[in-house]
């Protein structure tokens, strides 16, 4: 169930599942602030806390997608503000190539998102959440599971 509705969405009951990796010092605190401010946003994301966006291993993103996530959100501090000085720059560099590589593997760009959200930007967090859920709802499920294959009915031709 979503807290916002965009007009013109396909109403087929699909609710995106989003895994979010938030850095402890900025984005996680922004989410806390959104809570203490009683802001409301779509409940589709599940937050996994890391100390820095630089900890986010591309393998985490891929494992999340492989396990059925429809989107992955990475939240870190603004450039220049990283609590550990430069971890977010490494996250940024990885994100650029990872996103391109994932599009080559059929994962739409909009499913992987990196956002700089400082501890004071609870409203940005709310907006990003709502926006991302709406966008992925429009894209539909990621459908990255590898279909089982069997050849029960042999294809045949008779002359």
């Amino acid at each position: 169930m979503s807290e916002t509705h965009d007009a013109g969405q396909q109403v087929d009951g699909f609710e995106p599942r989003i895994v979010a990796f938030f850095c402890n010092w900025c984005t996680y605190l922004a989410a806390d602030l959104a809570g203490t401010s009683r802001m409301k946003y779509a409940p589709n994301a599940r937050v996994i806390r890391v100390m820095c966006s630089g900890r986010v291993d591309p393998q985490f993103v891929m494992e999340a997608l492989a396990q059925g996530a429809d989107g992955v959100l990475i939240g870190g501090c603004h450039p220049g503000d990283c609590h550990y000085q430069s971890g977010n720059y490494k996250a940024l560099r990885r994100y650029h190539l990872l996103r391109r590589m994932l599009t080559d593997l059929g994962v739409e760009e909009k499913r992987i998102r990196l956002e700089w959200i400082s501890a004071a930007e609870a409203d940005k967090l709310r907006d990003v959440m709502n926006e991302m859920v709406a966008e992925i709802r429009a894209l539909g499920p990621a459908h990255l599971e590898v279909p089982d294959e069997s050849f029960e009915e042999l294809e045949e031709v008779t002359v």
Binding site: M1, E3, D32, G35, K40, V47
Partner: peptide, 16 residues
Amino acid sequence: NIREHDSWVHKDMAAA
């Protein structure tokens, strides 16, 4: 965290 990140920011009980 089921308060700041959940009960305080969502309305629907089933989803929360």
